[in-house]
Simulated assay, not measured.
Amino acid sequence: MEALVVDDHPVVRAAVAMLLRKAGFLHIHEASTGSEVLPKIREHKPDLVVLDLVMPGLDGLDVLARIRASGMKCRVLVFTSQEPLHYQDRCMRAGAEAYVSKTNNLDHLQKAMGAVMAGYSYFVKLPSSSVALNALQRTEAQMIERLSDRELTIFQCLSQGMSNKDIGKRLNLSHKTISTYKVRLIEKLHVKSGVFLRDIAKRNHVI
C-alpha cells in the first residue's frame, strides 16, 4: 500500500510516516505544500492521503476541493490543529473520510487510519448547538458557517493577528485581495471594524 503525508512540518510528517509503516504501508511519499498534492497523487496513486489544513499556498480545504473536482479516487484523512467545530463538516462535505485533531494523542490517528482503510469514516461527535451554545454564539456560529472556505481561512488568520501582507504571502494572494476579504468579513459577521473579529473568533473557538 502507498500513502501520501501532506504537512509543512517535517517532525509531523515523520511521526505520521512512522504510524503508516506500522499500519502496513510500504511506500510513503511526502509533500509540504498544497500545490504539490495533486501531482503526487497522479504520480503515486496513494491508497491514503493524510492531509493538514494549514499550509503555504493552497490550504487543505482548497486541496480537498481540487481532488474532488479532478475525479481522482483516494481516501483522505484530515490531520490538523484546526478546531473541528468549524472545519470537520466542511471537510466531510468536501470528501474527506476522517478528521483527527492534532491535540489528540496519536492513538486517535492510528484508529482513524484503520477505520478509513477498512472502508469506514472517522469523525468526532460535535456538540449540539442548541445545548452547548448560548443565543449569541448560535447566531455567530450560523454566520461563520455561511462563510466560504477561503473567507473562513482569512478570518482565522486575521483573528490571530496576522497582517494583510503575511496572509497574502501565505495564501499566494495580493495585499489588496486580503483587504477586500477583510471588508467582506466585517460586513458578513456584522462587526464595526476588524478589531472585533478576534472577539468573535475566540468566542466561537475559531482560534
Rank of each mutant, 00 (worst) to 15 (best):
K176H: 11
V6I: 08
A141W: 12
Y120I: 00
G95Q: 09
S179A: 12
V124S: 10
Q110C: 06
S128H: 09
N204L: 15
L185N: 00
R138C: 06
V183H: 09
V183D: 15
A96T: 08
L109Q: 05
L197K: 01
R93D: 14
D52H: 04
S193D: 12
T80A: 07
Q142L: 13
D107G: 11
Y122M: 01
K73Q: 15
K176R: 02
V78H: 00
E145L: 12
V116M: 04
S121A: 12
P39A: 09
P56W: 05
I67K: 00
L61G: 01
H175Q: 07
V76M: 02
G95M: 14
E187G: 04
V37N: 05
H205K: 04
P84Q: 04
R184P: 00
A23C: 07
L85E: 10
L171C: 05
S128Y: 14
D166M: 13
L185E: 05
P127N: 13
V16A: 04
M162F: 15
S81T: 06
I207E: 11
L38M: 12
F196C: 04
D52Q: 04
E145R: 05
R184G: 01
L53V: 10
E43R: 08
L171K: 02
E30A: 07
A14I: 08
F196R: 00
N104H: 14
R198S: 09
K202F: 15
